[in-house]
Design a protein around this nucleic acid. Structure first.
Length: 780
DNA sequence: CTAGGGTTAG
């Protein structure tokens, strides 16, 4: 049933170059070497000179038996040696069989495999008889060069000529239906599959699975999967891999166990996919067992399995395990290196990643976009803009700028390094932005803590209009921005949006909601969020303790801190700082001091400069200025302007000039370039009526030409944000505001809490005191 | 005789 097909219906590319081997007669110089085939069979990529092929071909007629050519064509395809195939083509032309069905099919297949569709098409056109195999081979060729439209043109012509479609043909066509968004053709083909009774064929089934999964129809894919009578290793591997990519580790595991249960042998693909799937909801312990099992199956030395292990351990904070796999694996490639660098970056050891990146360069490996994106991530994680700029140069030189991961990493780098202008340029220049690119530029806005919120919301609406879906990171960052701007209305509407989209249950989003409400003034809503969350992490606790601190509810902060410990969450430096601040703002200086004394011995948290600042403030506010000075001098941070500034501030509050003068001297010596220091000192004198001293400090400041950045505060009333600059008169109601302010000032009375029974037990040598309760729980 | 599914790892 062969049909001759009119070539005019098929796309016929310009025949500029002939693929036919130039058969310039070259006399046989020697007899055909009978080991010819053997050489090819043994060496995967032999280097063959044109000359030896010509001489071989010329002797084919005499020495090569006619039936040997299909095997040599296989060798040609397998070894990537097109010359050899072309030689066989020449041989077939000479024997006059090139237009017959079987030789022709082989030649169409040959050229299709090498992506030479001009040549494949030409052989096809000149064939005298064609069958299903001819058509299928040609379609496969067009598919491989991503010419999907040609595939479907062939399908319709094939149909018109009532050529037979078999399971081979169907699976090729199904692959052509993989274009995202083009599921209609796929559904039609599925109907054809059922009608033609191809449903149970494992090849067709796998192609169908792939088609549905790539279009995002998991339920349909699962229906097909369950309907398949026989599933082989490749089909199961595919399903494991796809479940893993979707984060459905448990389902991937079910398929894996099904594979073992049905007696099929897992291969390297299987292990690579199932180990990767552990990154979802399974966890590293199962991953470890799989690692062991891969040893048993003798697949642990496979590069891709090792790479998957490096990544798995890296993602779970086990960098040393990643390193061990890296050193023990047989063969490493760029992916192995990138996985290792990524493990360092993810575990906050980007410096190491950047150092080891030099080793990659030393190896002379050609860098790809994934490796560059990882290194850029490393640069932004440790804010190494200098190296980042050099990598940006690499990116340009190697032509990877259009890669979306590289582009996003560049946005992130510039955003984290507070170079918002470059971040914007990278963002605007990136085509095919993803939600990650958007999140990266948002990080820049939050990093700048300036007035970028309107820009962020504008971008957000653009993104939604473009049909992109915000993720949990987007919401967390937008909420953080609203919190920074104390924009309650916007924060609330974002909160509503997270409820609607289901992201409210995400811990990071919930934590951002807590902080947003706290910073926008609603401690009740913050607590409402905190108490309604199903999953809490230590950041949630930190957020809520900080919220109480911010609202001056010291006792609640301390009780929450104790509850946090009771529930087994480990307090970190941020928790301790929040509780210290809470104690400070609420005048619970004894509790604060007690906590400070035991933070290192009991919680293993070494006090950082922020903790010292907080304690200086606490000591000063409670009237222990002399102890505060001692404390600073004994600390590691005695040359930090931060501590002295805090002390000046507290002296100003208390109107204590004797300590104030000492503190001011230190501050202005340590930070002569900061305008804020002069203003603070000047205000301290002015506060005590010493206007001459105040003016003197200002004169020094002006003489030194120290610039001053205006401080700014704002409040939201009736959905309108009112901004105030210190001593500013821009607000339309500023006259009334100042009058009211004076009235308030007149009514205020400062009552310092001068306790005398203070015991400063802090000492650089950790104290041994443990076990005291911070406050009586009944206070709450 | 010849044609078909999964290209896994960062």
């Amino acid at each position: 049933m062969y049909t001759l097909f009119p070539t005019s219906l098929l796309p016929c590319p310009p025949k500029s170059q002939s693929a036919f081997f130039p058969l310039k007669a070259k006399p046989p110089s020697s007899s055909f070497n009978s080991s010819f085939k053997l050489i090819y069979a043994q060496s995967p990529k032999p280097k063959t000179s044109q000359l030896s092929i010509i001489s071989s071909v010329s002797t084919c007629e005499q020495t090569l038996s006619f039936n040997d050519w299909p095997q040599i064509l296989q060798i040609s395809i397998g070894s990537g040696d097109l010359f050899l195939g072309q030689a066989i083509h020449a041989f077939l032309v000479k024997t006059g069989s090139q237009n017959d069905a079987v030789p022709g099919n082989n030649l169409v297949n040959l050229y299709a495999k090498f992506g030479k569709l001009d040549d494949a098409q030409r052989v096809f056109d000149e064939m005298l008889v064609r069958n299903t195999i001819t058509w299928t081979s040609l379609m496969k060729g067009y598919l491989q060069i991503n010419d999907v439209e040609s595939v479907f043109r062939i399908v319709s012509v094939m149909h018109k000529f009532e050529e037979e479609f078999n399971e081979h043909t169907i699976s090729v066509i199904l692959q052509a239906c993989n274009t995202p968004g083009d599921w209609i053709r796929g559904e039609q083909m599925h109907g054809f599959v059922i009608k033609g009774g191809f449903e149970e064929n494992v090849f067709v089934g796998t192609s169908l699975l792939s088609m549905y999964l790539r279009s995002g129809y998991l339920a349909d894919a699962e229906k097909v999967f369950n309907a398949m009578a026989y599933k082989d290793v490749r089909c199961l591997n595919f399903m494991i891999s796809e479940y893993g990519k979707m984060g459905h580790g448990e389902k991937a595991m079910d398929v894996f166990l099904h594979m073992l249960g049905s007696g099929l042998e897992p291969n390297d693909y299987t292990f690579t996919s199932i180990i990767t799937a552990c990154n979802g909801d399974i966890g590293v312990e199962v991953g470890r067992q799989l690692h062991g099992y891969s040893v048993k199956c003798a697949l642990v030395s496979e590069t891709s399995v090792g790479n998957a292990m490096i990544t798995l351990y890296g993602k779970h904070g086990l960098v040393e395990e990643s390193e061990r796999v890296f050193y023990e694996m047989g063969e490493r490639n760029l992916v192995s290196w990138t996985a290792l660098l990524s493990a360092y970056v993810k575990n906050s050891d980007s410096e190491k990643a950047l150092v080891r990146f030099l080793e990659v360069l030393d190896h002379g490996i050609y860098l790809d976009s994934s490796c560059l994106a990882t290194v850029l991530d490393g640069c932004s994680e440790c804010k190494n803009l200098e190296l980042g700029l050099q990598i940006h140069g690499f990116v340009l030189k190697l032509g990877h700028l259009s890669d979306v991961n590289v582009g996003t990493a560049l946005i992130d780098l510039y955003a984290k390094c507070r170079n918002l202008q470059s971040a914007r340029m990278a963002f605007n220049g990136l085509s095919g932005k993803t939600i990650a690119s958007f999140n990266a530029i948002l990080a820049g806005f939050t990093e700048m803590d300036g007035n970028e919120e309107d820009d962020a919301m504008l971008l957000f609406s653009q993104l939604r209009l473009a049909g992109a879906k915000p993720d949990s990171v987007t919401f967390a960052r937008l909420l953080t921005l609203s919190a920074g701007q104390a924009c309650l209305l916007r924060g609330k509407s974002l909160h509503a949006y997270t409820i609607k989209t289901g992201f409210e249950s995400d811990i990071a989003v919930g934590n951002a909601v807590i902080t947003m409400y706290a910073k926008c003034g609603s401690i009740e809503d913050a607590y409402q969020m905190f108490s309604s969350m199903n999953d809490l992490d230590s950041i949630s606790w930190n957020a809520m303790v900080s919220a109480y601190a911010l609202h001056g509810q010291g006792n609640k902060a301390i009780l929450l801190f104790q509850e946090m410990e009771r529930q087994g969450f480990v307090p970190d430096a941020i928790t301790i700082l929040a509780v210290l601040q809470a104690c400070n703002y609420s005048g619970l200086w004894e509790d604060g001091l007690f906590l400070f004394n035991e933070m290192e011995p009991k919680y293993g948290v070494r006090p950082a400069v922020e903790h010292f600042c907080c304690l200086v403030d606490l000591l000063g506010r409670s009237g222990h200025l002399s102890e505060a000075v001692d404390f600073i001098n004994k600390s590691l941070f005695s040359d930090s302007p931060l501590l002295w500034r805090t002390l000046v501030h507290v002296c100003k509050l208390r109107g204590d000039l004797s300590f104030g003068k000492t503190a001011s001297k230190h501050l202005l010596e340590l930070a002569p370039e900061e305008a804020g220091s002069y203003i603070l000192v000047s205000n301290m004198y002015a506060g005590r009526g010493m206007l001459e001293e105040a003016a003197k400090v200002r004169t020094v400041m002006n003489d030194l030409k120290v610039g001053k950045e205006a401080g700014c505060s704002w409040i939201e009333i009736n959905n309108k944000v009112h901004r105030f600059v210190a001593s500013g008169k821009d607000h339309p109601q500023s006259t009334e505001i100042y009058v009211t302010l004076d009235l308030l000032k007149a009514g205020m009375k400062y009552t310092p809490n001068d306790s005398t029974d203070l015991q400063l037990i802090w000492d650089p040598v950790p104290s041994q005191q443990h076990g005291r309760r911070l406050v009586d729980p009944q206070v709450w």
